[in-house]
Amino acid sequence: MKIKKILNNNTLLVNDKGVEKIVIGSGIGFQKRVNDIVDKTKIEKVFVMEDKSEYEKFEEIVKSYPQEYVDVAENIIHYAEQKLNVELNPHIYIALTDHLAFAFERLKKGIVVQNKLLEEIRSLYFDEFKIGIWAKDYIKQKLNIEIPDDEIGFIALHIHTAKNNYRDISVTMDIASIIKDMTKIIEASLNIKIDEASVSYQRLKTHFHFALKRIIKNERTFGIDMELFEVIKNKYSKAYNIAKNIQKHIYEEYDYTMPDEELAYISLHIQRIINSA
Rank of each mutant, 00 (worst) to 15 (best):
K2D: 12
K4W: 07
K4T: 10
K5M: 04
K5N: 07
T11I: 11
N15T: 09
V19R: 11
V23H: 01
G25Y: 00
G27I: 03
F30T: 05
D39H: 07
K45E: 04
M49N: 01
D51P: 03
E54Y: 10
E54Q: 12
E60G: 11
V62Q: 01
V62S: 05
K63M: 10
S64G: 12
Y65Q: 11
Y65S: 11
P66S: 10
Y69A: 02
I77N: 00
A80Y: 04
E81V: 14
Q82N: 12
E87P: 12
L88A: 05
L88H: 02
L88W: 02
P90W: 01
I94K: 07
H99S: 13
L100E: 00
A103M: 06
G110E: 01
V112Q: 06
Q114I: 11
Q114D: 10
L118H: 03
R122S: 08
S123N: 14
S123F: 11
Y125S: 03
Y125E: 00
D127T: 09
D127P: 02
E128I: 06
F129P: 00
W134P: 03
W134H: 10
D137F: 13
D137E: 13
Q141Y: 13
L143I: 08
E146K: 15
I147H: 02
E151H: 09
I159G: 01
H160C: 04
T161H: 00
A162K: 05
K163L: 13
R167N: 14
D168I: 10
T172N: 00
S177L: 03
K180I: 13
D181V: 15
S189P: 07
L190R: 06
I194R: 07
E196Y: 10
S198D: 10
K205P: 06
F208C: 14
I215Y: 08
I216G: 04
N218A: 15
R220V: 15
F222V: 14
E227H: 06
I232R: 00
K233T: 13
A239S: 11
I242G: 01
H249A: 06
Y251I: 09
E261Y: 13
E262P: 14
E262S: 14
L263Y: 07
L263T: 05
Y265D: 05
I266A: 09
I270A: 06
A277R: 05
